[in-house]
Design a protein around this nucleic acid. Structure first.
Lengths: 242, 242
DNA sequence: GTACAAGTGATTGTATTCAATCTCACATCG
DNA sequence: CGATGTGAGATTGAATACAATCACTTGTAC
């Protein structure tokens, strides 16, 4: 029914359904609600309420909140509760700046690793898995665009960029990108990113450069991709404030 | 006895001792142990052992582990436990690259904010507090160097850079820097950073540029500072491998 | 009427307990 | 001899119960 499956990897895991742990599920759900506007900044989130909402106890909720706090999406004060952080709109300039550096490094490393994997014979199972996820995301994006469901693009966008990070094999960069990437989408909040369609097409060329193991081109394409995304945001933002 | 106090803010808080929550303390302790080599990469960390070591129950330990996992210092698999992540030595190049962008943005923003705070009359209490912490860190560093306790510099180094991030007022950048900064020091592991003394002196000029509200100079000085740190690392690393 | 203080309710922090899952050694079979 | 299945032990995941702290209300004194 939904053009976007929450778990696209389900049919190909041979050992069992292996549904994600409740904590992980709740954590992703809350983060998603924050990024896409269901939980507006400043909202007070109490552990009991979240626990009741998701039908679990407070302990896993607390752990999810600690992770989200480390990622910067909620703020907690001892004994005083947690609130959704304010959208870092003042940091937009810096966030895009850092993102450009981060994503460029990620793309370069992904291309290098792809070349290395093929040079060493057959790529590892881990690598293929990440590559397949990326292929599915790209296809989902095309389908979503064909159906004119642009509202679904932001989430796919995050998944593409995180997918590239996975392909880079660098846990450090992936962890950092997860936060930056989420925050950038957060900036757009409920708004629809008008550059969405065009932006999505660029993903294919980035993917091609990575697959070709062309590190320099992958880095340059990604840097340009992010840079244009930044310009688009700043244009809309300054237009809205004047 | 120790030239470096764990909590230098204690004597000046008027409302009470307010010692940090056990969870926070344990979390910082574990992270510190990881960064400075007491807990080597690959070490298996069980919740029960940590709980016993710090005299608390497993729940706060679990929350600390979730935070450290989000920060990339430990890796956890469901029902299979947590291990200390491997030192991201392969990512060194990318980490320094990203750090340079991140720290430059932070320094620039800190200088801008300092200028804004003074322009608007008196700086906020929050700003003064961050500034005082930074002053104490700088003095501690000088003292440590005078006593030739270079082994204490890495921790002060982290605290200086995090202090600048605090001064920038950007929660997003601070959260990112906390991870990068820790990982960079982690690269040096138990090794002593030979550039330590010289590097520390540069902190004073960065601080001066921030206080003066000179955003361009603060950014340039910080970029150069980080860049040289990177060169120093790569030199030592390549020298060690050849 | 206002300021201050104590009390009360709500919320988070922690401990304890039980259930679910994984790891690893050992035995069995080809 | 090697591969595979099974079981016990260990470890994490989650639920419940209780303690500590905070925020807000309410009452009282001035």
């Amino acid at each position: 029914m939904q053009p976007l499956q929450p778990e696209p990897s389900s049919p190909e895991s041979p050992d069992g359904p292996r549904e994600p742990a409740p904590k992980q599920r709740v954590q992703d759900e809350i983060r998603r609600d924050i990024i896409f506007g269901t939980l507006p900044p400043g909202t007070r989130v109490t552990e009991a309420a979240l626990a009741a909402k998701y039908g679990i106890s407070r302990v896993p909720v607390r752990e999810a909140l600690r992770t989200l706090e480390a990622e910067g999406f909620v703020e907690s004060k001892p004994y005083a509760g947690s609130t959704v952080s304010k959208i870092p709109v003042d940091d937009a300039d810096d966030l895009f700046f850092v993102r450009e550096a981060l994503e460029a490094a990620t793309a370069r490393r992904a291309a290098k690793r792809a070349a290395a994997q093929f040079a060493a014979g057959a790529p590892s199972a881990e690598w293929w898995k990440a590559r397949r996820v990326l292929a599915a995301v790209l296809d989902d994006g095309d389908r979503v665009i064909a159906q004119d469901r642009l509202d679904l693009l932001p989430e796919l966008n995050i998944r593409f960029h995180l997918g590239v990070a996975d392909l880079s094999g660098s846990a450090s960069l992936t962890a950092l990108l997860r936060q930056i990437s989420g925050k950038i989408e957060w900036l757009y909040a409920t708004d629809v990113n008008t550059r969405g369609k065009q932006s999505w097409r660029e993903h294919r060329s980035i993917m091609a450069a990575i697959d070709a193991g062309n590190a320099a081109e992958a880095e340059a394409l990604m840097a340009s991709h992010v840079h244009q995304s930044r310009e688009g945001y700043l244009d809309r933002f300054s237009a809205a404030t004047e």
